[in-house]
Write a protein that binds this DNA or RNA. Sequence first.
RNA 1: GGAGAGGUGGCUGAGUGGUCGAAAGCGGCAGAUUGCUAAUCUGUUGUACGGUGAACUCCGUACCGAGGGUUCGAAUCCCUCCCUCUCCGCCA
Length: 428
Amino acid sequence: MLDLKQIRENPQEIQAQLQKRSDQYDLTALLDLDQQQRELTTKRGQLQARSNEIGKLIGQKIKGGTNPASPEIQELKTEGNDLKQQLADLEPQEKGLKFEIEELILNLPNLPSDSTPLGESEDENVEISRWGEDYLLKNPETCRPHWEIGEKLGIIESTRAVKISQSRFVNLIGMGAALERALINFMLDQQIAAGYLEVMPPVLVNSETLKGTGQLPKFAEESFQCAEDDLWLTPTAEVPLTNLYRNDILEANQLPIYHCAYTPCFRREAGSYGKDTKGLIRLHQFNKVEMVKLVRPETSEEEHEKMLANATAILEELLLPYRVIELCTGDLGFSAKKCYDVEVWLPSAGQYREISSCSNCGDFQARRANIRFKEPGKKGTQYVHTLNGSGLAVGRTMAAILENYQQPDGTVTVPKVLQPYLKREVIG
RNA sequence: GGAGAGGUGGCUGAGUGGUCGAAAGCGGCAGAUUGCUAAUCUGUUGUACGGUGAACUCCGUACCGAGGGUUCGAAUCCCUCCCUCUCCGCCA
């Protein structure tokens, strides 16, 4: 959530920053409502002050021995009643305005960082670096897509998954399931070693929680909902991990907080019909190891770079070629001010595909989720900065392994670092 | 799911409808003092919004689980909801 005070004080600047994302955001309605609301609040505050005063006065007089039925008291009661009536008129107006303002501001995305490249769409994302070209397949023309490899090996199965669920679900079988588990364990072990405290959080979360990280209200159609219980299936562990500290005032010395978690993630993928219908790339349910940081504002940029390194380290250990791109303003996620995507090489597609997204959300989520910290000596509180990144998407990592490690005979070599986990060197 | 109890400030825990933002204790902070890694004493102690201000301050409003209601006035009375705990049932 953006800072309303800041919007009020620098409307044209904020407008210009939002403009970098797209031209669909207009602050004029918000500013107008804010002005009205503030006037009302001031007026109501004055009336309320007088009303409180009368209440106290009556109390004092009665305690002092004045007859409650005396004209003096009656007169005050009349004034009190009159004020009450006026307040009763103002209050709904004020509430209505506050509600409208809230709705507008909750639908405004974060302001892009100054360093975020300008651009309208993903076409203008900027490649930052590449790694692992030595590990590219030597014979790309004969390589097969991971779903074919998986099906042939009997480790990825989709027909029966569709029967028991829907399209965009799969069964992992035998070594497929084992490889998935091995990857989860490997990734967690790596991130724990990098300083993240593991959490195994609930994956059903309430509406407040989704609002805190920015998935609600704007992206309700992206998540699966259990409406009867006000619970949603988490689209990413970023949601429960960040919300661990919702409404908290942390001590400055608790920061930075690093968490990692393995969770299944659930996404409706509304609007992606026909895209990536095969294989492990775009499923309604997938596994992910996530990293989340809560940090002091002045350190968030540096923490962001470190988090990116934690994500890419996994790919380097697995010897999978990747590149890092920085999202341009037009492609930036709702809550992020700056975002790196890590893309792994998928030889069958002949392209890099997203396998991690590392975002610096600044204080945007902290405002929504009301996560603050307090400096011991100082007065008042500050919002923390929140960051999140995949470390990594497990299914897509499996896809990359199957494709990049495939052998001409149809088997798949197990990456060295996974061999201790999987207790074998070849799948097939 | 059934029955009961309860939700108050960082924590423990008082609070008869009227100077209650809330006693007391603990903790925290500041100071004083004492021949000594600690004790004692004194003072202080939340958050948010708005106004004023360079700032400390000051003023107003709101917050005693949430939302309504009664009243001139609600932590206190009434209603609804949420949550926690205990017992029973069920269950991995």
